[in-house]
Every structure is written in structure tokens, then in C-alpha cells.
């Protein structure tokens, strides 16, 4: 069973994001970039499926400029068998990513497609369900556990009210939530080896996909800072202030 994992390159989650002076966009010059944390989890799950003998091949794909090859190499160092880079310039929004991934799914015919539940830059959380719709597959978002039994996939999802379990037949699209697994780290020899591995090159335009963003970024701003509050020195003072100043407790 082939498993396809979609990998996005994003700003490292520890980096404090800056806004350009003209507010046209965020400023990512010299920012440390990394694999989207939820994609790491999706990839880890695929690798575990391979280790369990359920997956036969793990293919990673990323859409973007040349820089995304860095994350594809990381993915191969972690255990992906094969990498595909679909080149496309500029901002790739979720719908563009989904359409491109749909074209890759058509070529590769994976039984399972794993994505992150959300990109930590755009926080859009759309690509998985969009892809599932475009290829007519079932979807399971926010997965915290998956079980594959023959042709049936059973997924436990993290929903607002708790947990929910769905069943579906393969092929299907699954998006990974935080608690699906804990990703491993790449080992140095594997990283060195991955540097020499080939990456298959595709092009969004050649795949017939229009990646023009469907949304125009009008402006970006830093949110209104909260006024730094006061330090209270005792529980009594805290209660007094909550009661008489903020008036939020009776």
C-alpha cells in the first residue's frame, strides 16, 4: 500500500514573526524555516505504517519554490522512500495545494494520503478536506489514532467535545493532530545520505494546475497588545482586585 504525505515548509514555530514596515505581508527574510509540525506527525505515522508492514512505500510531496527541497530531504532522512517537488512560485494557498496534490494523487494512486491538520503559518486547516473532495475520497481530520484493517480505516478524531471515531474504506485522506504520535529525530548519517538522493521534479503548470491565490492579502498587522497588568502580592490582594476593580467575581 502506497502512502503519500504532504509536507509544507513554514517558519519555525519558535520564531517570533515580524511584519513588514509597509504592512504588506510578514517579513520572513532570514527567518529559520522548518517542516510544519503537523506534517512531521503525518510523516511519522506513515513511517510507522511502513515499519508495521502495512505501507509498502512512503512518498513525500511538497509544493513551492526550490527551498522546499530542504524539507523533502529531511523527510527522506526520517524514512520516506521517495520525494516529489512540485515547483510553484509565490504564495501557495490551501486550495492551490489541494488541487496540486489531487494531480499527484492521480499519478501515484496512493491508498492513504496523510497531511497535517493545519499549517502553523496560515492556520487555515483546509487542504485535507479540499483534497478529499477533489479526489472523491473519504476524509478524517484531526486524527489522534488510526487503525488499518485490510481495506478499512478506523480513525479517532479530536473534536471540540471530546473524541469521535469514524470508519471508512480506503483510499482516504487523513489529517494529523498533535497526539497522533511523537515524531522521531533524523540521524546524522541518514541526513548525509538524504543529501544525495534524487528528488522527482514536477511543475504545477505542467500538471495543469492554476495556483494563483484566491485571496488577496490586503494588509497584516500586529494584534493590539494587551496592556501589561499589575503584579499582586498576595491572594488577598488578588481577590480584592478581582472583586472591586475588575468586578469579575461576586
Amino acid at each position: 500500500m502506497k502512502v503519500l504525505v504532504a509536507i509544507k515548509r513554514v517558519i519555525d514555530y519558535n520564531v517570533r514573526v515580524r511584519v513588514r514596515e509597509d504592512h504588506s505581508d510578514v517579513d520572513l527574510t532570514h527567518a529559520k524555516m522548518a517542516m510544519n509540525p503537523f506534517c512531521e506527525i503525518a510523516l511519522e505515522e506513515a513511517i510507522r505504517l511502513k515499519e508495521q508492514g502495512i505501507a509498502s512505500e512512503v512518498i513525500v510531496v511538497s509544493i513551492g519554490d526550490k527551498a522546499v527541497q530542504e524539507q523533502l530531504r529531511t523527510a527522506m532522512a526520517l524514512g520516506a522512500d521517495r520525494a516529489i517537488h512540485v515547483s510553484a512560485e509565490g504564495r501557495i494557498d490551501s486550495f492551490a495545494a489541494a488541487k496540486t496534490l489531487a494531480a499527484v494523487v492521480e499519478r501515484e494512486a496512493p491508498r492513504l494520503v496523510l497531511l497535517g491538520k493545519q499549517s502553523i503559518d496560515s492556520d487555515s486547516s483546509q487542504t485535507g478536506p479540499m483534497l478529499a473532495a477533489l479526489v472523491g475520497m473519504a476524509q478524517a481530520t484531526f486524527a489522534s489514532s488510526i487503525k488499518i484493517d485490510g481495506d478499512t480505516l478506523s480513525v479517532t478524531r479530536e473534536i471540540d467535545a471530546g473524541l469521535e471515531t469514524l470508519a471508512m474504506s480506503l483510499p482516504a485522506v487523513v489529517t494529523a493532530d498533535l497526539r497522533l504520535n511523537e515524531p522521531r529525530y533524523a540521524r546524522l548519517p541518514a541526513i548525509m545520505k538524504a543529501k544525495k538522493r534524487p528528488i522527482e521534479a514536477l511543475d504545477a503548470a505542467e500538471l495543469g494546475v492554476d495556483v494563483t491565490p484566491r485571496q488577496e492579502l490586503v494588509k497584516v498587522e500586529l494584534p493590539a497588545e494587551r496592556q501589561a497588568g499589575v503584579r499582586v502580592h498576595s491572594v488577598d490582594e488578588l481577590i480584592d482586585r478581582l472583586r472591586n476593580e475588575a468586578k469579575v467575581i461576586p
Binding site: 486550495f95 489541494a98 492556520d123 486547516s125 483546509q126 487542504t127 478536506p129 481530520t141 478524531r157
Partner: peptide, 23 residues
Amino acid sequence: STTGGRSLMPRVAALLGVGQVSD
């Protein structure tokens, strides 16, 4: 933008051939 809406609406958008604005 509950977990229900966030699973459903992108699927709706793709079926309608449009993008989606989240949250």
C-alpha cells in the same frame, strides 16, 4: 470554525471550486 465547521467547509469550498477563508 469548530472542529465540525473546519472539516466541512473546506470540503464544501472545493466542491464549489472556490477557496475558503478560515476563522
